[in-house]
C-alpha cells in the first residue's frame, strides 16, 4: 500500500522544534570564514590602486591625491580579490554582511595625517550628506553636486572603520 507513508515524519515534525532560524528577531550566527564585507585599515593604505584595478565588479574607487578609499557595498560581490592582492595587507573580510539600505551609497575612508581616521558617507546621485555625519574638516573626495536634497531619507551607517562587529 504505502499510502500516508510520510505520516511518520510529518507527525514527528509536529513535536520537534522548527529548524528555521529566527533572524532578524535574533542576531544571525555566522561562521568565522564567511565572506561578509570588506573592511580596510585605512592608516596602512598606500593608495596604490591595486584593489581598484583587480575588482571584477568595479566597486572600489581609490583617489591617490586625496588618500581616500571608497567602496560601493551594493556592487561588491564579496569575492575577496582585493584582500588577496593588497600589497600591504590592509584589507580584510569581516564575517558580517553589509547592512541593507534604502539608498545606494558609497562608503569612503580617508587617511588622516592625525591619529583619528575620519569617515564620511557620500550619497551618489548628488544628495548632500546630512548634518549629523561625524566627519571632521575633510569632506569625502567624491564629488557631490548638491542638486535636490532628499531630506532625512538616507539612513546613516555607523562608522565601521574600527572594525566594530554589527552594522
Amino acid at each position: 500500500m504505502g499510502y500516508l507513508s510520510f505520516a511518520g515524519t510529518i507527525l514527528g515534525g509536529l513535536f520537534k522544534k522548527p529548524v528555521t532560524t529566527q533572524y532578524p528577531l535574533k542576531p544571525a550566527v555566522l561562521p568565522e570564514e564567511l565572506r561578509g564585507r570588506v573592511l580596510i585599515d585605512i592608516q596602512r593604505c598606500i593608495s596604490c590602486g591595486m584593489c581598484m584595478r583587480k575588482c571584477p565588479a568595479g566597486a572600489i574607487v581609490v583617489d591617490r591625491s586625496a588618500k581616500s578609499w571608497s567602496i560601493n557595498r551594493f556592487a561588491c560581490v564579496q569575492c575577496a580579490t582585493c584582500v588577496d592582492n593588497c600589497p600591504v595587507k590592509c584589507l580584510r573580510m569581516e564575517p558580517q554582511y553589509a547592512a541593507p539600505g534604502t539608498v545606494k551609497q558609497n562608503e569612503t575612508f580617508v587617511k588622516q595625517a592625525a591619529a583619528q581616521p575620519a569617515v564620511a558617507v557620500t550619497l551618489v546621485k548628488g544628495v548632500t550628506p546630512t548634518a549629523s555625519a561625524p566627519a571632521t574638516g575633510t569632506q569625502a573626495a567624491a564629488a557631490s553636486a548638491a542638486t535636490a536634497a532628499k531630506t532625512a531619507a538616507a539612513p546613516q551607517t555607523t562608522p565601521p572603520g574600527d572594525g566594530a562587529g554589527h552594522a
Partner: peptide, 29 residues
C-alpha cells in the same frame, strides 16, 4: 509541499558546510 520543505531542510546541512569551508553558501569563489 511538505516533501519539498523537508528536502530543502536536508540541503541546508550541505550549504552550512559550504559556508564554513568556502565563505559563501551559494557562490563559493
Amino acid at each position: 509541499e511538505s516533501l519539498f520543505m523537508h528536502s530543502w531542510r536536508l540541503r541546508e546541512k550541505v550549504l552550512d558546510i559550504f559556508e564554513k569551508t568556502t565563505g559563501g553558501r551559494v557562490i563559493f569563489s
